[in-house]
C-alpha cells in the first residue's frame, strides 16, 4: 500500500476540468516529482491532493485512510504539509514566529521540532529574530519549508520550491529536501527545473494535459529518449 495514493483525479475550478484522470502515488520516504509542460495541471494536481480543489471523481488516501472529503486544514492534522509556490511566509513576522505559526495546530511543546528545523537550515537560526520578508529569496524558501515541517508532517508537498532562486541555492535546497526524505518523510514536489528534479526523484510523473503520460523512476525517465526529446529539451 502506498503512503499517499491519489487515484484517477478529475476536476477543475470552473465547468471545464483541468485534471483528466491523474494518478499520483508516493511511498514512505520517497521523493516524487511531478514535471510536465506549462499548463499541464501540475500545480492543480498538487492542490487537488491537498484538498484545495474540489474533485469531481477520484479519491485520495493517506496511510490507507480516505481523506478525499477533508479540508486542507484537516489534512494538515492528518500529516500533510504544504509549501505554496508564492506568498509562503508571513513577511512581517520573524523567522521564529513563522515557525511558531506553522505549528499553530499543535498543542504540545514545539521547541524540539524547531531545533530540528534550525539544524536543517542553520542560517535560519542566526536570523530567527529577523522579519521573514527581509530575507533573501532562498532563505525565504527555507522559512517556508521549515514552516511546513513544524507540524511534523509525514508527507511534505512543495509547489515549485526553486522558482526564482539561483542555481546554487537550488542545489542546496535539493540537498535539504533529500535530507528531509532520508528522515522518513515522503516528498511530493512540482518542479519547473525538470532535469535537476528528476535527478533526485525516486519516482517521476510526467503530466500532460491533466493526465499521466510517463511514470517511472527519476533516472529511468532521464534516460528515456522520448521523454528527453519532448520534455527535457534534448
Amino acid at each position: 500500500m502506498n503512503y499517499l495514493s491519489a487515484t484517477d483525479m478529475r476536476g477543475g475550478y470552473g465547468k471545464a476540468d483541468i485534471l483528466h484522470g491523474c494518478t499520483l502515488n508516493v511511498e514512505k520516504g520517497q521523493i516524487a516529482v511531478i514535471v510536465g509542460p506549462n499548463g499541464a495541471g501540475k500545480s492543480t494536481a498538487m492542490k487537488a491532493v491537498f484538498g484545495m480543489l474540489p474533485l469531481r471523481e477520484g479519491r485520495v488516501t493517506l496511510d490507507g485512510q480516505d481523506i478525499t472529503a477533508l479540508s486542507p486544514q484537516e489534512r494538515v492534522k492528518k500529516g500533510m504539509g504544504f509549501v505554496p509556490q508564492v506568498n509562503n511566509v508571513f513577511p512581517s513576522m520573524s523567522v521564529e514566529e513563522n515557525l511558531e505559526m506553522g505549528a499553530f495546530i499543535r498543542n504540545d511543546d514545539i521547541a524540539a521540532t524547531m531545533e530540528q528545523v534550525f539544524d536543517l537550515f542553520p542560517v535560519l537560526k542566526d536570523k530567527r529574530r529577523q522579519a521573514a520578508g527581509e530575507l533573501s529569496g532562498g532563505q525565504r524558501q527555507q522559512v517556508a519549508v521549515g514552516r511546513a515541517l513544524m507540524t511534523r508532517p509525514q508527507l511534505l508537498m512543495l509547489d515549485e520550491p526553486t522558482a526564482g532562486v539561483s542555481p546554487i541555492v537550488m542545489d542546496e535546497l535539493f540537498d535539504r529536501i533529500i535530507e528531509i526524505a532520508r528522515s522518513g518523510i515522503s516528498i511530493l514536489m512540482v518542479e519547473q527545473n525538470a532535469r535537476q528534479a528528476l535527478g533526485i526523484a525516486d519516482i517521476g510523473y510526467v503530466l500532460v494535459q491533466g493526465q499521466n503520460r510517463y511514470t517511472d523512476t527519476g533516472q529511468a525517465l532521464l534516460a528515456d529518449p522520448e521523454v528527453r526529446r519532448t520534455f527535457l529539451g534534448g
Binding site: P72, Q73, V76, K77, F82, P84, N87, N88, V89, F90, P91, S92, M93, E97, E100, M101, G102, F104, I105, R147
Partner: peptide, 19 residues
C-alpha cells in the same frame, strides 16, 4: 495575538496553518 498578525500578513497561509 500572533495568529492575528499572521492572518493580517498572509490570509491564505494562515488558513493553511490551521488558524
Amino acid at each position: 495575538g500572533k495568529a492575528m498578525r499572521a492572518f493580517s500578513d498572509n490570509e491564505d497561509l494562515a488558513l493553511l496553518s490551521g488558524i
